[in-house]
């Protein structure tokens, strides 16, 4: 990375390193100090945004990186939420254990979805996953006392090390920690051999196979990881609302998730984050323009599909070519 003439690479490296460290510390400081500047409402929106960032990134793994038409995101989101709810309410499992357990359960379900994905092509996979989501929703509705049906499963205040997490600010710190951790892990995964294998499979599966990549294992891995990430988001969602109901995981939700990904750009992790932020914050800013949400939303999506198929990530890349390697697995 040394491109300054006349200086040694170690010196520039040190300068760059110091600068990055300062920026990172300031960013961290800002993030940690955020609750001081926000009222309850704004903090809630920030928390919701963190959740949707996870949803968006998780969905993008299967949709963008692997390139599979798996529409199970809302279902996995629901599984994460209901697992947490049932574990905490019906089985009295503390949040500290319920969260990782839900992630695990969602990851397992993700794997199970990955299995038929090996056989089914394109639209068949889309339809099966769509239908699976609806079937799960039917189960939540008819789950009797376990899921409390449509009136919703209330979730009492979670406790972490006996410390209740009640206010939006407290939730924020927990969410921030979980989100940063998962995003960091995902980023590393995407840059690793596994991430590269995903892209190779997406581009040309047979060619990838001929290079010695066994598609099946990597495909399953993608579904598993996606399930884990989205499941974590679902668990946090349950805590945020304090109450989960089947309607929150219907096809409308799926469309929302899809729009996050498309706005950010398929196969672009930072884009997914940006997409989630925009689409969660914007409706709140535009709160009082009633009646047109569905239309604005679908027009936005159509516009993105037609004119910005690479999403915002694509636009960023056009203006900052240096980001290309960082943003795109292309």
């Amino acid at each position: 990375m040394s491109d300054a003439i006349g200086s040694t690479s170690i010196e520039t490296g040190k300068r760059v390193g110091l600068r990055t460290a300062m920026i990172a510390t300031m960013a961290l400081g800002a993030l940690l100090a955020l609750p001081l500047l926000m009222n309850d409402y704004q903090q809630y929106i920030v928390n919701l945004t963190l959740i949707y960032c996870l949803v968006s990134v998780g969905f993008n793994i299967v949709l963008g990186y692997l390139g599979q038409l798996a529409f199970a995101n809302a279902a996995l989101f629901g599984i994460g939420a209901y697992s947490t709810g049932i574990l905490m309410q019906q089985l009295d499992v503390p949040f500290g254990f319920a969260l990782p357990s839900s992630v695990l359960i969602a990851a397992v379900v993700g794997t199970l979805i990955g299995l038929p994905a090996l056989r089914l092509k394109r639209y068949y996979l889309a339809i099966v996953t769509l239908v699976l989501g609806e079937l799960l929703r039917w189960t939540y509705i008819h789950g009797g006392d376990i899921t409390r049906g449509s009136s919703g499963l209330p979730i009492s205040t979670p406790k972490l090390f006996n410390f209740p997490i009640e206010s939006e600010a407290q939730k924020y710190y927990v969410f921030l920690f979980v989100t940063v951790l998962i995003l960091w892990a995902t980023r590393n995964l995407l840059r690793s051999r596994i991430g590269r294998a995903w892209v190779a499979i997406r581009e040309n599966e047979l060619a990838a196979a001929s290079l010695g990549i066994w598609p099946a294992i990597y495909k399953i891995a993608a579904f598993t990881w996606s399930g884990a990430v989205v499941g974590a988001a679902g668990a946090l969602f349950a805590i945020l609302l304090g109450r989960i109901e089947p309607e929150s995981f219907n096809l409308n939700q799926l469309l929302l998730h899809f729009t996050f990904v498309m706005i950010g750009g398929l196969g672009n992790m930072i884009g997914s984050i940006i997409g989630a932020v925009i689409l969660t914050a914007a409706p709140e800013i535009l709160r009082n323009f009633p009646g047109f949400e569905e239309i604005v939303f679908s027009l936005l999506l159509i516009g993105v599909l037609l004119f910005m198929p690479r999403g915002i990530g694509g636009i960023l890349v056009a203006y900052f070519p240096r980001l290309r390697e960082r943003l795109f697995r292309d």
Binding site: Y41, Y44, I45, L48, G152, L240, L241, R243, E245, E247, S248, E284
Partner: peptide, 8 residues
Amino acid sequence: CDPAKGIA
């Protein structure tokens, strides 16, 4: 009629 939005 959506809890997430309603809470907001």
